[in-house]
Computed example of a mutant assay.
Amino acid sequence: MTIMCSAESPNQPEIIIAVLAILLTLVFFLIYKRGKSTRRSILLTGICDSGKTLIFSQLVHKKYVQTYTSIKDNVGGFLIDNVFLKVVDIPGHERLRYKFFDEHKSAARGIVFVVDSLTFQQDLKDVAEYLYNILSDDVLAKNKTKFLILCNKQDQTLAKGSNAIKSILEKELNTLRVTKSRQVESVDPKTSKTSVLGEHGRDFSFQNFSLNIEFAESFGNHNKDGTNDIDQLVKWLLKIA
């Protein structure tokens, strides 16, 4: 006697769908990893005389250099935890900053916005305007670029701390976005809500902003025998490398 054993045949469409789902997941993961690996740049930006070039020299060359107002981008390498990062010092002059920023932003893994903590109050309008335009950039939003606001020159007695700078910037950015929203609304009322930096109907807050924005403090040496402290910056770079 022959005994026939029957078994339910697998559902072919379900298997095909499952395999396709796995393949698509792998493809998206590889695309994400490739995009992340190609974004190896750290952009040092901010207005003139904030100390960007001195920080650049300490990261890249690990030494003091006499700095002057930059008229072109400075590019160098920084190795951290066996990961190579390309460090780009963006000129702070108003006529140059956006040109060089636009050239490098698509390759940026992180943005370090350097603030002169000593002259911050008198430079507030210029600092906030530049920061507003960077935070509004569609490329950075798409890439979810990491962002650090580095409050520099903390060795100076009258320098404002990072908490104070954060609070003042939030208020100034909130005022600025109201002004810009009204300007946009006067041109096209339909775009007024979508053009607002941050959440519409709520005061601007770094904590609730779409990009991950952190604050840190630093100071650079002002002479060959001086000291410097960029430890918080290095820790942040290690975290995002």
Results as ranks from 00 to 15, higher is better:
Q122I: 07
D102Q: 12
F204L: 10
L158Y: 04
F206V: 05
V187H: 06
E103L: 14
T67C: 09
M1L: 01
N212A: 11
L197G: 04
N143S: 14
T179E: 08
G198F: 06
S117Q: 04
D81Y: 03
Y132P: 03
L54M: 13
V83M: 06
F28K: 04
F100P: 08
D229K: 08
V184F: 05
S9D: 04
Q121N: 10
G35Q: 08
N223Q: 13
D89A: 07
E8P: 02
P10R: 03
A164L: 00
N208V: 00
K63Q: 15
F206H: 03
S57H: 13
K142G: 07
Q156W: 06
Q122S: 14
D126C: 12
S117R: 04
S41P: 00
K171D: 09
N174G: 06
L43M: 14
S106D: 13
S181K: 06
Y32G: 14
A7H: 09
I71E: 12
K52C: 13
I31E: 09
I90F: 08
L150E: 02
I15C: 00
R34S: 14
T2V: 02
F215Y: 01
Q207P: 01
A159E: 00
D225G: 07
L96H: 00
I111V: 10
L150W: 05
I213Y: 05
F78Q: 09
A128L: 06
A141W: 07
S6I: 05
R40E: 11
K190F: 12
H93S: 15
I240K: 11
T53P: 07
F206C: 04
D225Q: 12
G198S: 12
L140S: 11
T2W: 01
D231G: 15
L135K: 08
Q122T: 09
F209N: 02
A141R: 14
I149D: 06
K224Q: 15
L30C: 10
V60D: 10
F84T: 12
T53V: 09
G92K: 01
L124R: 10
E172A: 08
G35N: 13
Y98T: 05
V27K: 09
A108L: 07
R182G: 04
T175N: 15
E94Y: 14
I47R: 04
L131S: 05
Q12I: 01
V184R: 03
L118I: 05
